[in-house]
Design a protein around this nucleic acid. Structure first.
Length: 235
DNA sequence: TTGGGCCAACCCAGACAGCG
DNA sequence: CGCTGTCTGGGTTGGCCCAA
């Protein structure tokens, strides 16, 4: 779980005072803010893990493709993670420099392969969005040409259900057909979307409480708050 | 003249490669 | 084998330039 209480934040001994401390001029408050930022980052990593833990994953992509080709697998939805993809021998030239977050294989009387770039948020750094899309296109073309699946690529913003907003956040680089919501991704993987949302909701509540408690442990903060309350009561 | 696109500079975590 | 550096990935702010 991604909780503020688990985060270290910036290590003052090793790296000196953080920008947060500089911003507010209070060591303890700065450290707390640094831990919040750390928590935001952890959330993204955690999301991927939550999804991976809840679906059938492939443990060797080369063997998997061979089995499908020889009809030894003819039913099911399977996920190939970044880690597994890296170990491929057969598709070495395809993954050179490009590694999408997830590859989903749907085997039925048809065969679909969906290359997924997973995001937690719904906006994307302008610096990278063009390159990111180019990578997805190149990858799905090259990879698609080598496997017996009809292959396409998607960018998925897990926490945004409005595709127009996602498109805008991606600087209009992606067409709506190549945009996927978190709900759709879960549907594809047969994962309970609401369960994931609920797990994160729990963390949110804990984080809210923890943050306020830690905040009030800082003498200067408490003093300031009391002062504000006192003046508003005297009106 | 204002607003949007684009870029740079910050922040920290976590995975991973390379090196002594 | 553990440390160190690098990259990616989640954010924010601010400046510059160009076009409406």
């Amino acid at each position: 779980m991604s909780k503020i209480s688990n985060q270290q934040g910036r290590n003052v001994q090793k790296s000196g005072v953080s920008g947060y401390t500089r911003a507010v001029g209070n060591d303890e408050l700065g450290q707390l803010l640094s831990r919040v930022q750390a928590c935001v980052i952890s959330n993204g990593n955690e999301l991927e893990k939550l999804l991976i833990d809840r679906c059938s994953t492939i443990d060797n992509i080369d063997i998997f493709i061979k089995k499908v080709t020889t009809s030894n697998i003819n039913q099911g939805t399977f996920l190939c993670t970044k880690k597994i993809l890296k170990k491929t021998q057969d598709y070495k030239d395809v993954i050179k420099g490009i590694e999408p977050d997830m590859i989903i294989f749907i085997v039925s009387n048809y065969r679909l392969c969906k290359i997924i770039e997973l995001k937690d948020g719904d906006t994307f750094d302008t610096k990278k969005v063009k390159g990111e899309k180019a990578n997805l296109v190149t990858f799905s073309e090259k990879f698609g040409a080598k496997i017996p699946f009809s292959t396409d690529y998607y960018v998925c913003c897990f926490n945004q259900n409005n595709k127009e907003i996602i498109r805008e956040g991606m600087k209009n680089e992606f067409d709506l057909e190549h945009i996927m919501t978190g709900k759709e991704l879960c549907q594809l993987l047969n994962i309970d979307y609401q369960e994931i949302i609920n797990i994160r909701k729990n963390d949110m509540e804990e984080n809210f409480n923890y943050f306020i408690e830690e905040l009030l442990k800082i003498p200067e903060v408490l003093e300031k708050i009391n002062q504000i309350i006192a003046t508003s009561e005297n009106k």
